[in-house]
């Protein structure tokens, strides 16, 4: 087993290589005549943000939220509603004007989703276990039906965002440009998560997952830390939703559907629960599976089901653990 400095050097080298590959990706895709890979990669990055955020609550904090689609979808709707007001020259709730500035819409999406997570978390965290799973699902369902019924925001059909948000004057119509926006956001999120999980806060959160009784006995008030983690997690999911609305140039209640919560959980567990890069691996694997299997058969979920089942039942720790085991064997 390599000692600590060597290991952290190897980790650093791995991250650097990953970063280089991600930066090179759009150029390589164009060069190889596969420009369709670029939005696909954006999708992976966006889901990686959402899954990694969910993982903060679920993997590190042990809070099995079955309602993260609420935060993801709401983030998307923030972009949609602001855009609708912007092009219609109207005011949102009659209060403030709309916008298509990425640097406004993204933080606002995080703020709004975070506020929702604060409300949902404050109530849901009074329960635990299966009740927590179900109450988070219930709140997400409420939001789903709310948006289905809001004709002003398109109801069932959702809202079309005809043109992607801009960064000052920089237009993101070009898929590669937008990919770099996503990459920048994902980098920020992963760096933030990395700092959070090794910080004092992160250690408390991990302790709460392992044994709440113990944490109380050393003088920690569990509720506020769990709630804070839940809010951060919701904010990350909201950011991902806002990016997704831009990528697809469309938001609809689909983003709020409970199966979306399920998909995010699948990505986390596919990649590796409670690991930093697991959700990225999981998102990549999920999207890759979806893409290749759909090309092969319309019944792609028939193949996804057994794969997921095997991962849950027989691999401990998902792809992340698998990679670690493989690289461990090599060295």
């Amino acid at each position: 087993m390599p000692d600590a400095p060597q290991r952290s050097f190897a980790a650093l080298a791995g991250v650097a290589a990953l970063m280089a590959a991600l930066i090179a990706l759009p150029f390589l895709a164009k060069w190889a005549g596969q420009p369709a890979l670029i939005p696909l990669a954006s999708r992976i990055l966006i889901y990686a943000i959402a899954a990694a955020s969910l993982n903060l609550a679920l993997g590190y904090g042990g809070m099995v939220s079955f309602g993260h689609a609420a935060f993801f979808g709401l983030g998307g709707y923030v972009v949609g509603v602001l855009y609708q007001a912007y092009v219609g020259d109207a005011r949102v709730f009659g209060l403030f004007p709309g916008t298509n500035q990425l640097l406004v819409t993204l933080p606002l999406a995080m703020l709004v989703s975070g506020a929702l997570a604060l409300a949902i978390g404050a109530l849901s965290l009074r329960t635990a276990g299966v009740q927590f799973i179900m109450i988070t699902l219930a709140f997400a369902q409420m939001l789903f039906y709310l948006f289905v019924s809001l004709k002003a925001y398109g109801g069932d059909d959702g809202l079309i965002v005809r043109r992607r948000n801009v960064l000052f004057d920089l237009d993101a119509r070009d898929d590669a440009t937008f990919y770099f926006f996503c990459l920048a956001a994902a980098t920020l999120v992963f760096v933030a998560l990395w700092r959070i999980v090794v910080s004092r806060f992160g250690l408390i959160l991990g302790g709460l997952r392992q044994n709440e009784t113990r944490m109380e006995a050393i003088g920690v008030a569990p509720y506020r830390y769990k709630l804070a983690a839940f809010v951060l997690s919701g904010m990350g999911a909201g950011l991902a939703g806002a990016l997704m609305a831009n990528l697809l140039r469309f938001v609809s209640p689909d983003m709020l559907h409970w199966t979306k919560s399920g998909e995010l959980m699948i990505m986390v567990i596919l990649g590796g629960v409670g690991t930093l890069f697991g959700p990225l691996l999981g998102a990549a694997a999920f999207i890759a599976l979806e893409t290749f299997l759909t090309a092969w058969t319309e019944h792609w979920q028939l193949a996804l089901g057994p794969i997921l089942l095997v991962v849950v039942l027989f691999t401990r720790g998902g792809l992340h653990a698998l990679l670690a085991r493989l690289s461990g064997r090599r060295s």
Binding site: M265, I269, V273, H299, L302, G305, P306, L308, V312, L313
Partner: peptide, 29 residues
């Protein structure tokens, strides 16, 4: 399937049975 899940945590149970839903729905389709 379920027999293997009795001693697992809720997360594993949710995902494994979610996978079953996917399988059943597609099989019936």
């Amino acid at each position: 399937v379920l027999r293997r899940l009795y001693d697992r945590d809720h997360l594993d149970q949710v995902l494994a049975t979610f996978a079953l839903i996917l399988i059943f729905n597609q099989a019936v389709t």
